[in-house]
Design a protein around this nucleic acid. Structure first.
Length: 306
DNA sequence: AAGACGAAAGTGGTTGA
DNA sequence: TCAACAACTTTCGTCTT
């Protein structure tokens, strides 16, 4: 069904088709390849139950615009002078009110969304994620959750949450680097915001990290899928619960690189995964013990010698 | 000499009283 | 609110290739 098979940017094969948005996302580099395909979704769906949210009239609502693309202002000039003086006073009062209410929030939103765009383009996040983050942030502002926190940290928190929900996770470190906010601060606001807004987020799946780590290590597709396979097994023996997903992903990748004779040092893997060698070692050790992978590694060693 | 390995002490976050 | 706790990090010394 997809028309694009490879990412034109990085050549990655991990394309993710987001049907709702009619776009294809490269999970490796985050490139959005939306124009390359026809968007069937909307017309078809018009007839089923949830037509309210999928209606196709009007400009699409977007949260990345500070007023969701729907600006309404209490009248400008125009018929004003046709009104009596009482009416006119009322009019001015209304406009003043609207101005007061809206400016505080809107000014904040304008700034915040600019920041959000900056960070998300730095991280090459797909627009669906950016949109989601903007939505989360907007909600947060409306609930007054930004008070006492810096705007930037809430933006980062929203982005982090959006990434998780869309299964294109970035690590807190990456967010931190892109936004200039401390890692723990992002984590804190992320937790706070998601809790307050009742956003439920699945614990991130290590497999989601594999593609990106693998491509920045320039590992082959086979190695990549082997790593995912290892992850599956690891999950069955409950090696994964309670551990940091990045550490597990990194270890799986390290092992499968060994198996396929594309050796990377622990240091290299650790760097792209944002964990230390020690963590990789620990996970790696566990993997070997529980999944009896030693044989496979030895096999490839022998092959190389012969 | 570089990488892999392991022990020990420290850090930040979660949990349960 | 505090202490216990598990996961992870940092640091450093030793072993392997």
């Amino acid at each position: 069904m997809t028309y694009v098979k490879k990412c034109p940017e990085c050549g990655g094969i991990n394309l993710f088709w987001n049907k709702d948005k009619g776009e294809v996302i490269c999970k490796d580099c985050g490139l959005v390849i939306e124009d390359k395909m026809v968007d069937f979704g909307q017309e078809w769906r018009e007839f089923d139950s949830e037509s309210q949210s999928k209606r196709r009239t009007g400009a699409p609502l977007t949260y990345t615009q500070y007023d969701q693309g729907l600006g309404t202002e209490v009248g400008q000039k125009g018929d004003l002078y046709a009104l009596g003086s009482k009416e006119r006073n009322k009019f001015f009062r209304l406009r003043k009110w609207q101005y007061r209410i809206s400016t505080a929030i809107e000014r904040n939103l304008k700034l915040a969304l600019a920041e959000l765009k900056r960070v998300s383009s730095y991280l090459k996040l797909p627009s669906s994620v950016e949109e989601e983050a903007a939505r989360i942030y907007t909600l947060a502002v409306q609930r007054g959750l930004v008070r006492g926190r810096s705007m930037e940290s809430v933006v980062s928190g929203a982005l982090y949450a959006a990434c998780r929900r869309h299964e294109v996770p970035r690590t807190l470190d990456e967010l931190s680097e892109a936004s200039g906010i401390e890692k723990k601060e992002i984590g804190r606001t992320y937790r706070f915001v998601t809790r307050e807004l009742g956003i439920s987020i699945l614990p991130s799946n290590p497999a989601d990290y594999i593609a990106r780590f693998a491509s920045s290590l320039k590992l082959s597709a086979e190695t990549q899928s082997k790593a995912v396979e290892i992850l599956d097994k690891a999950q069955k023996v409950e090696l994964t619960s309670g551990r940091g997903p990045t550490g597990i992903a990194a270890a799986a990748l390290y092992v499968s690189a060994l198996i396929h004779g594309e050796k990377r040092t622990q240091r290299e893997v650790a760097d792209v995964a944002g964990v230390t060698e020690v963590t990789i070692r620990n996970r790696y050790k566990e993997l070997l013990e529980k999944l009896k992978l030693e044989k496979e590694i030895k096999k490839t060693k022998k092959k190389k010698k012969v």
